[in-house]
């Protein structure tokens, strides 16, 4: 039965991709990209990749669709027909790369084989020893936050770089001070939505915190929690207007928090260096090694969650602030 569902999901992915190529209405393309993210997230669930499904759903289906829609609100909806000369050049190149890729798959270990090199070399140690060495059930979080913690540090820096980049490009310092702007939200007539949102937002924030601290035992962790936390603010900003949202979250505070998250992550590592161990070695935090790993992973996930949440808020507010110039509204 799982094979049928896999094939069904993959064929839906292919159909969505082909539809995206042909549709010229960019709003529809943004929505189909959201559907593409959703299907690939469900495919990840079928492939036992629960944490990745979590992240892909919240990032692929949620954040990237919202960002694309915010951009389309500024740049306009319809796309021009693509030029024949470009497609004639692109098709052979794409077919050539595709042929090389297919050629590459001929010697691959077959799908789901338990004896392929991937399953035998590095992975068994994580699965067998992580219970004793780190003591948390979710092996993905233990690899993410302890064995390969420096990769995750690089990742937090990538998100921080994106936040700095979007700020450097779109930051507007000429926005009127918050107090003076009357709150004229565009969604006044959607009273139903505002009531429901008012009920939902605390629940979403609570769910975000649950995901943050549940990362060791089930799917979840810093990234997913950060994105969920930020999506609560997006909902508030969309329904109550940007000025109300800017009253809630002050832009300089958000930037300081984003920097703070990265610094929390960095100091967790540097503390290990100060006492002679290597960077990001958690055995410094307490004499019992397993307990030390728990503490280390907790700090790491806190730093990651804080940075991801605040950078997502920075990116969304900077984009929406930019469209305020266009519409001069809310």
């Amino acid at each position: 039965m799982e094979l049928i569902i896999n094939m069904g999901l993959l064929s839906m992915l292919a159909m969505t991709a082909i539809a995206i190529v042909r549709i010229k209405d960019l709003f529809a393309v943004a929505m189909l990209a959201g559907i593409y993210g959703l299907i690939s997230a469900s495919f990840f669930v079928m492939m036992d990749a629960v944490d990745v499904a979590f992240t892909e759903a919240s990032v692929g289906a949620g954040i990237s669709t919202l960002l694309m829609l915010t951009t389309l609100a500024i740049t306009g909806r319809f796309e021009k027909a693509d030029k024949k000369s470009r497609t004639r050049f692109a098709l052979p190149l794409v077919l050539l790369t595709g042929a090389l890729l297919i050629y590459g798959t001929l010697d691959m270990p077959s799908f789901g084989a338990a004896d392929s090199p991937v399953q035998e070399h590095v992975a068994p140690r994580y699965l067998n020893d992580s219970a004793q060495e780190i003591g948390i059930p979710n092996v993905v979080t233990s690899v993410l936050a302890s064995y390969r913690a420096f990769d995750t540090f690089g990742e937090v820096i990538v998100i921080f770089t994106a936040g700095v980049g979007v700020l450097a490009l779109l930051m507007r310092t000429d926005l009127p001070p918050i107090s003076s702007v009357k709150n004229t939200a565009s969604m006044e007539e959607h009273m139903v939505l505002r009531i429901v949102a008012k009920m939902l937002i605390p629940l979403i924030l609570l769910f975000g915190l649950y995901v943050q601290f549940h990362g060791e035992y089930g799917p979840g962790g810093g990234f997913q929690a950060g994105v969920i936390f930020a999506s609560a603010f997006f909902l508030y900003a969309m329904l109550y207007g940007m000025n109300a949202a800017r009253k809630v979250i002050d832009s300089s505070l958000v930037q300081v928090l984003a920097a703070l998250g990265v610094l929390i992550y960095g100091t967790t590592g540097v503390v290990a260096m100060l006492s002679g161990k290597n960077f990001l070695d958690y055995s410094v935090f307490s004499e019992d090694p397993v307990h030390a790993q728990h503490l280390g992973i907790l700090f790491i996930e806190l730093g990651v969650g804080l940075t991801v949440a605040t950078v997502m808020i920075i990116i969304f507010f900077t984009f929406s602030g930019r469209s305020q110039v266009e519409g001069e509204r809310d």
């Binding site: 540090f153 700095v164 300081v256 984003a258 990265v262 610094l263 960095g266 960077f279």
Partner: peptide, 24 residues
């Protein structure tokens, strides 16, 4: 001295967020 191989990357990576806090 033992931490030299990693210091040259860690210092700018920690300095960047610190600069965002300094702002001036």
């Amino acid at each position: 001295l033992a931490h030299l191989p990693v210091l040259h990357v860690i210092i700018p990576m920690m300095a960047a967020p610190a600069c965002l806090i300094l702002r001036r």
